[in-house]
Structures are given as structure tokens and as C-alpha cells.
Computed example of a mutant assay.
Amino acid sequence: MVENFFSQLKGELFHHNSFDTIEEFAAALHDYIHWYNTTRISTTLGGLSPTEYRAQTLTA
């Protein structure tokens, strides 16, 4: 699972961007992790974002 995350992180963040400072990299990494954990659509979650999936699970 962790290997899958890092593979996606490298493919979606590192290979498409260049960073001039550590601060730029840290901000981009923070934004990516926030997006990954809250709004990305996941096929393994039935096409829902993690936030939507958790909300659906809590109401069931």
C-alpha cells in the first residue's frame, strides 16, 4: 500500500514539477497529501473520494 502511494506521488507530483526551494516542495507535498486523503476519486472506493467514502460508511 505504501509502495503504491509513493509510486503515485512520484508520478503525479515529482515528474511534472520542478521546485526551486525546499519550501516550494514542502508546500506542494502538503497540498498533494491533502488532495490524496480528501478529494481524489478512487476506483477501489467505488468512485468516491476518501471523504465521501468515510461519510457514507458513518451513515450506514
Rank of each mutant, 00 (worst) to 15 (best):
Val2Asn: 14
Val2Ala: 13
Val2Trp: 12
Val2Glu: 14
Asn4Phe: 11
Phe5Gln: 05
Phe6Cys: 05
Ser7His: 12
Ser7Leu: 15
Ser7Gly: 13
Gln8Trp: 14
Gln8Pro: 09
Gln8Met: 14
Leu9Ile: 00
Leu9Gln: 02
Lys10Gly: 06
Gly11Ser: 05
Gly11Met: 12
Glu12Met: 07
Glu12Trp: 01
Leu13Ala: 02
Phe14Glu: 02
Phe14Val: 15
His16Glu: 00
Asn17Lys: 03
Ser18Ile: 15
Ser18Cys: 06
Ser18Gln: 13
Asp20Lys: 13
Asp20Trp: 07
Thr21Asp: 01
Thr21Met: 01
Thr21Lys: 07
Glu23Arg: 12
Glu23Pro: 07
Glu24Gln: 12
Glu24Tyr: 07
Glu24Gly: 03
Phe25Ala: 10
Phe25Leu: 04
Ala26Lys: 06
Ala27Gln: 15
Ala27Ser: 09
Ala28Gly: 00
Leu29Ile: 00
His30Cys: 10
His30Thr: 15
His30Gly: 03
Asp31Ala: 03
Asp31Tyr: 05
Asp31Asn: 11
Tyr32Asp: 11
Tyr32Lys: 02
Tyr32Cys: 03
Ile33Ala: 11
Trp35Tyr: 03
Trp35Phe: 10
Tyr36Glu: 10
Tyr36Ala: 04
Asn37Ser: 03
Thr38Lys: 05
Thr38Ile: 07
Arg40Cys: 00
Arg40Met: 02
Ile41Ser: 12
Ile41Gly: 09
Ser42Gln: 15
Thr44Glu: 14
Thr44Phe: 12
Gly46Ile: 00
Gly47Cys: 09
Gly47Gln: 07
Gly47Glu: 06
Leu48Glu: 11
Leu48Pro: 01
Ser49Thr: 02
Pro50Trp: 07
Pro50Asp: 08
Thr51Tyr: 04
Thr51Trp: 03
Glu52Gly: 08
Tyr53Arg: 13
Arg54Met: 11
Arg54Phe: 08
Arg54Ile: 14
Arg54Lys: 12
Arg54Tyr: 09
Ala55Lys: 09
Gln56Ser: 12
Gln56Trp: 08
Thr57Asn: 07
Thr57Arg: 11
Leu58Thr: 14
Leu58Glu: 13
Thr59Phe: 08
Ala60Trp: 12
Ala60Phe: 10
